[in-house]
Amino acid sequence: MRSLVYLQAHLGEVAVLTVEHLEMVAAATLIAFVTAVPVGVLISRRRSWAVPVLQLANGIMTVPSIALLGLLIPILSPIGQGIGVVPTVIALVLYAQLPIIRNTYTAIVHIDPEYREAAWGMGMTRSQLFWSVEAPLALPVILGGVRTAVVMNIGVTAIAAYIGAGGLGHLIQSGLNAVDDAVVLAGAMVLALLAVTAEILLGWLQWWLTPVGMRT
C-alpha cells in the first residue's frame, strides 16, 4: 500500500525513470536486431559456423549481468565511457544476441524445403528467394526472439543502475540504500508491469507482422 502511495507522490520522477529505462532497452534492441539477424542468416547458410557462433552467444548469456557491466568498466574507461548508458546498452546488445541469432537461424533452417525448390525452380535469384520467401516465412519466429530479448533486457537494465545508468533500477537502488521496502517494491512493481506490457505489445506486433496467410 505504501508503495502505491509512494508511486502516486513521485509520479513525475517515476515517469522519467521509466522513459530512461525504455530508451536504453529500445536502443539496444534496435542495434541487436540489425546485428543479430544478419549473423543468424549467415550461419543458416554456412551450417559449420552455426555451432561455434551459437556457443559464443550462449557463453555471453551465462555471464551474470553485474559481472558483465563490471567487465566493461576497464574496457570502456579509456574512452571515458566506463559507466553510464554506453556500457549498459553494449551489455544489453550482447545479451540480446543469443535469442535473436538462435531464432533467426532456427526459422530459416526450418523453412520447408519445398518452398525453396519451388522458388529456385521458378527462376528466383538468391536475393529474391530471401526477400520474398525466406524473410516473410521466418519473420514471426525472429520476432519471437526479439520478444524474449526485450523482456529479458528490461530486467537486466534494472541492474545497470549500479553503474549510474538511471532507469527504474535507480528506484530500487535508492530504496535499498534508504532501507525502505516500499520504495524497493514500488520499483519492482513498475518494472514487472513494464515487462508484462512489453510482452503483450510485442506479441501483438508479432501477430500483426505475420503474413496474413500464416496467422493462426
Binding site: E117, M122, G123, L137, G213, M214
Partner: peptide, 23 residues
C-alpha cells in the same frame, strides 16, 4: 544462365510448394 533458363520452364512439384505468405 540458370535463372533465365528456369523462367522459360514451368516447374510443378509434388508438394506443390505454394508460398503460404502469398495469396
Amino acid at each position: 544462365d540458370a535463372v533465365h533458363l528456369r523462367r522459360r520452364m514451368g516447374y510443378v512439384i509434388q508438394q506443390v510448394g505454394l508460398f503460404p505468405n502469398m495469396t
